[in-house]
Design a protein around this nucleic acid. Sequence first.
DNA 1: GATGAATGAGAATTCATTCAT
DNA 2: TATGAATGAATTCTCATTCAT
Lengths: 191, 191, 191, 191
Amino acid sequence: MLEVRERIIRSAIKLFARKGFFETTVEDIARGARVAKGTIYLYFKDKPSIYTTIIERHLQESIQSLREIEMQKISHREKVVEIIKRGIKIWLKFKNAHPMFSIENINFAKKLMRGIKPLFMKYHAEIIERIAEIVKAGIRTGEFKNVNPAVAAVYIINIIRTAILLPQINPDLKNYEQDIEKIFLEGLIRR
Amino acid sequence: MLEVRERIIRSAIKLFARKGFFETTVEDIARGARVAKGTIYLYFKDKPSIYTTIIERHLQESIQSLREIEMQKISHREKVVEIIKRGIKIWLKFKNAHPMFSIENINFAKKLMRGIKPLFMKYHAEIIERIAEIVKAGIRTGEFKNVNPAVAAVYIINIIRTAILLPQINPDLKNYEQDIEKIFLEGLIRR
Amino acid sequence: MLEVRERIIRSAIKLFARKGFFETTVEDIARGARVAKGTIYLYFKDKPSIYTTIIERHLQESIQSLREIEMQKISHREKVVEIIKRGIKIWLKFKNAHPMFSIENINFAKKLMRGIKPLFMKYHAEIIERIAEIVKAGIRTGEFKNVNPAVAAVYIINIIRTAILLPQINPDLKNYEQDIEKIFLEGLIRR
Amino acid sequence: MLEVRERIIRSAIKLFARKGFFETTVEDIARGARVAKGTIYLYFKDKPSIYTTIIERHLQESIQSLREIEMQKISHREKVVEIIKRGIKIWLKFKNAHPMFSIENINFAKKLMRGIKPLFMKYHAEIIERIAEIVKAGIRTGEFKNVNPAVAAVYIINIIRTAILLPQINPDLKNYEQDIEKIFLEGLIRR
DNA sequence: GATGAATGAGAATTCATTCAT
DNA sequence: TATGAATGAATTCTCATTCAT
């Protein structure tokens, strides 16, 4: 049997993803973790802090993934492609509950989420920063066009988002990753 | 003074965008519209239906915008650029509350959104369809690369989203639209 | 077209009988009377006073009916039977909404009905009184057993109630009036 | 101190009888039971279900009482008298709130009662049935007149009602039970 | 007289959080 | 540590009544 704290987190991830933060009750989480309601409060200060913990974990995972990519001996183009691939993998785990690349959700519930924003912003800024660094390097080596690296970084995060949303919106689509990558790297315009 | 119904809608748009659906109370909306709580219920069946009405309005506006672009006598490239420009304008108004712009919210509050989903999906499908048609035409004329038009359509919607998020994440950035457009149309890779 | 006031009363009678006092809204009554909601308040002080008016009308009708029976040249036994017959007829019109022989309803809604109680009690006392007078006379002439006339009067009102409830409880029953009258006049015990 | 659930039920019985269902608030009940408002909802799904529970309890008590009477080794006449005596005792506790005792209430609040009606009808039918059986047996043995037993059963229930109402209407009356019993068993007519 | 839009007090219900055991 | 019964603030929604037109 897992640690109580871990059981709570896993139960919460499952429920937040399925029903959302507001429509998941602390009781639901407790039931899923097979502990009593009160026990939750021995491990977490309040409901939002469960959410915060989950987000933080995923953001850290994302940053760890970026660090690994940075150190690989591959072209910057390949690095960018790798960021997208691994980003999809990590974020897919957390799917819809993840406010990561859905920054709006942070505003979606001001009061409750107030505590999440600074945390999120800190990590988010680092993620953008690290991706921007790779883009900047790619520009220096002449691999990439001369664009604002920060803009490109946000753009890349949205590419990940596009890849995750696409099958939700259009489940029949196959091999869309190739098209996304193509448009992203080479542009929509034919020459 | 505006019509009561219109005042309620505008108050709700402002509040949903600022605080989100759950943390906006009916009383808040009433206060913002300068009517009594009960008055809301003369114009709307319940709280979710205010939300639905707002969403529908924005989706219809989006579709109307697409129709106008379709009829313009400009290149497909210019049409796509125009879609993005006008999309930004429309969605900016509704910012954070807009579930299209932030499809994750649909899962962020499953039960609430259940009623909205069919409505949303209907319009969303039409929007994707119309954008895809333009892309398809552009491919035929040789303006665009040969990619799956549906993939490109979702991609374009996410470009709009990127453009809206960027200044929120990094308020110092200037002229980022140009870079976004450049990456989108010509790709990140230099040649 | 009837007078407005009369239209309101008839609409209310119909609705109170069908849905009860609490679940009939003033708006319902107005719609049924084909007047605007506000118009009701030109004719009645408030919602309970519509109810009061209806009750008063029926109680007066009951008393009028008793007065007529008193003057008839028939035996006391026949008078009592007549009271029951005409009581059934009058009360049936108002059926379930009638708190008359459902004195509990007066307590069923203390606050709202507070105004009804004195009115009701006044008439009710008179009705009991008049019936008791007839019973007393019957005892004097030797037609009836020597029982407390007031007890007999309430008993008689409950006979009316029994006759009205029976078909509601058991719709298949036929000719039950005869059995009720028999038990009432001659008793259940065989001799 | 009683169990919480029991305290809630007793508080509700007292209040429903005094003020009626509609004018008793959940807060009232909670205060009377000395628990918080929310606690009510740990024991009952909603307000009507408190009512239902109370009704069911009293109906079951009535049936249990009938079963006991059935088994007694006394004449049918004595059984019938016993039914009335014990009926008075049981129903007095629940007085005004009891819809059996006051079947009109069923229509006094149609929507509310819709959920109660099937429950009520089930028990009510059994009560009538059991009383009717006793009457039928009394007719067979020659104790009772040859009347429809179902009619007599409803008649008996109304006798109970008469006995409960009488002191409410006329508080000065003494020994009225004897007169009621006399009229019921031997009839009003003198011979 | 007549209207019906607007009001707002009041009710039922939910659920995060506490705390005695 | 763990429990889960109890709490009560907060929210949605209803509807009798008012009042400007």
